[in-house]
Computed example of a mutant assay.
Amino acid sequence: MSAIPKPGQGTLSQVLQRKKVLLGVYYLFLATLAFGFLFPLIWMIATSLKTGSEALSSPTSVIPADPTAENYWAALEVLPTYFWNSVKLAFLNVAGLLVVASLAGFAFARLRFPGRDVIFVVVLASALVPHIVYLIPQYVVFREYGWVDTHFPLWVPRAMTPVFGTFLMRQFFLGIPKELEESARIDGANTFTIFSRIMLPLAKPALAAVALFTFVDSWNDLLGPLIFLNSQELQTVPVALALFQGEFFSNVPGLMAAATIIIVPVFVVFLLAQKYFVQGVIMSGLKG
């Protein structure tokens, strides 16, 4: 039934008309906000289709006067080696971090051992220490191991210290009913069987969220390759972008074309994991 307007509100048609106006203003505000977020992406793609002279003469225009794909061909000649290095590191980071974070999150959520909550607080507190504080000691240690100018410093520390991933997995495991675990123990299942056959299949949304965050973090890492890698053939795509910048001149269209190519894998991964990602972030915050 239609709502009956209260005295002083006007007729029903007037109330509906006001609601339509307010709804239109709301959608207009959201569209303006969305355009504000999308404009840098639109500008980047438009600039990647410009010539060098046009990019300098009209840098703010979003419609190229004479679109060209030459910048993309030039970028594709430079990026392949760097691209596969980034893919390799992203895979190692995601795989390693998912294993460690899921095991640690399960232990903090389901296992009882002395000092569990204190250790978990210490793990979370470690995230408050800025990375730059222990960068030099870390470099000295990796140099002693012979890891400098290898890919080990770019994935082993991240995979072995998954603070955010552990927190997210713990929160998700806390939300799984204990009755499932108790039923499995009655049937004779041990702890590892419960973890691998009951908990992990249910934790797909949280795993997808952790994997996506880890992939983006690894893909965008610039400081790590600059510090630990010396060989050009081991560098990653963020470093490759610097090749389009010179001391006195920057190839802005080429840089934008390379940046557009680089964000495609992140966009594809997000589309594939979007359903699980949103569900995992929401469900992981239900319990404390």
Rank of each mutant, 00 (worst) to 15 (best):
V269F: 15
F113S: 10
I282W: 08
P67R: 04
I186T: 07
N190S: 12
L223E: 07
I282N: 12
A46G: 00
G288F: 09
P225R: 01
I227V: 15
L103M: 14
L212I: 15
S2A: 15
P157F: 00
T236Q: 09
V129N: 07
L23D: 11
T193Q: 11
S102M: 08
Q232W: 09
F172C: 11
L222D: 11
Y27A: 01
S126P: 03
L243R: 13
S13C: 08
Y139D: 00
G105K: 09
T81L: 14
S284F: 00
T60N: 12
T60F: 15
T11C: 03
S86I: 00
I63G: 02
L223H: 06
L89W: 08
H151D: 03
L97Y: 10
L154G: 10
Y276D: 10
T51G: 15
P7I: 02
F142M: 15
H151P: 01
A203P: 05
I42Y: 03
L79S: 12
L255A: 02
L89M: 04
G146K: 03
K50F: 00
M1N: 08
G24Q: 13
V216A: 13
P40R: 07
I176V: 15
A107R: 07
I136F: 08
V266K: 13
G224I: 04
L229K: 00
F249V: 14
R197L: 08
G254Y: 02
V15W: 06
L92T: 09
M169F: 12
S231A: 07
A95G: 10
T60H: 09
V148S: 10
V118F: 14
F215L: 12
M44G: 13
G285W: 05
G175S: 15
N230Y: 12
G8C: 12
F35W: 11
G165S: 09
Y26F: 14
L180K: 07
A125S: 03
L207M: 15
S183C: 02
V129S: 07
A69Y: 04
D66N: 13
F270K: 00
A257R: 01
L271C: 12
A208D: 02
I42F: 02
G280Q: 00
I136A: 06
A159H: 03
G96F: 05
A242F: 13
Q138W: 04
T260C: 15
D149V: 06
M44F: 07
L207C: 05
A95K: 09
P162R: 04
G36D: 05
L222W: 14
I63K: 07
A189V: 06
Q9Y: 10
A259S: 15
S250Q: 10
M283E: 15
A31D: 10
S183G: 12
P253Y: 10
P64T: 06
